[in-house]
Amino acid sequence: MANDNERPIPGASVGEQFQDNARMSMRNVNIFYGEKQAIFDVSLDIGQNQVMAMIGPSGCGKSTFLRSLNRMNDTIEGCRVEGQIAMDGQNLYDEKLDVVELRARVGMVFQKPNPFPKSIYDNVAYGPKIHGLAESRVDLDEMVESSLRKASLWNEVKDRLHQPGTGLSGGQQQRLCIARAIAVNPEVILMDEPCSALDPIATAKIEELIEELSENFTIAIVTHSMQQAARVSHRTAYFHLGRLIEVNPTEQVFTMPEHELTEGYITGRFG
């Protein structure tokens, strides 16, 4: 990359990359779009029930990295992953791995709320239905209710479950997408800038929700807002030009960053 010459970027990342209770572990991951390399040699662990925030300037590859964690970048043509990404010791890019099963275990919430053009109920029931999780209609009703409750949306929508999900406000839509994701009982939830399309009040609600969800789920969240990373996450990873620069407990990253690039970013010198 041309920028390599302008600013020195170390080959190795600094900080505590590895965890004892790792849920997902990435080793020497390189990701390419055709000829262009987007992620350079990233090694990182995400621990059980941790909220891992990924921050960094636009185009630093954090979303690409996130999408590789449940193989959503399979849908992008020419995208290629090297190295090892493993969940509970199983390599995600193993040929024998069932992508469908993986995605049921690693859910994802996107930047722009994308509820299906169906009723609120059907949005949440979608996952349980395709995975055959519900034995009966009553079962399904319960699953929908509990998912909506966990996404703290139940009280707002319980009287209009059969109205279209697209009719909700942006924040409600995003919480609906979270409810939809947790309805299949994933173990890990990936969030790709889940609040970037929302107003501050809706954002606060989602952040509160992330905190509650971290009791039951492991969460990786990409965010542009450093305050958000500081508020919701346990550990923070700073990406720069496709490289993992630093990963440390969130408090340390925002108070005593180890690397000068991290410091530059969080103090607003660039980004």
């Binding site: 993986l102 053009p117 979608y126 939809r180």
Partner: peptide, 26 residues
């Protein structure tokens, strides 16, 4: 929109399930 398909695929739906349940209705 691709986001519809992404939403469904990310839930662990197969491609044909996504087409049947999300893309065609839309």
């Amino acid at each position: 929109p691709q986001s519809m398909r992404d939403g469904s695929l990310a839930m662990g739906a197969t491609q044909s399930e996504t087409i049947r349940n999300v893309v065609i209705p839309a």
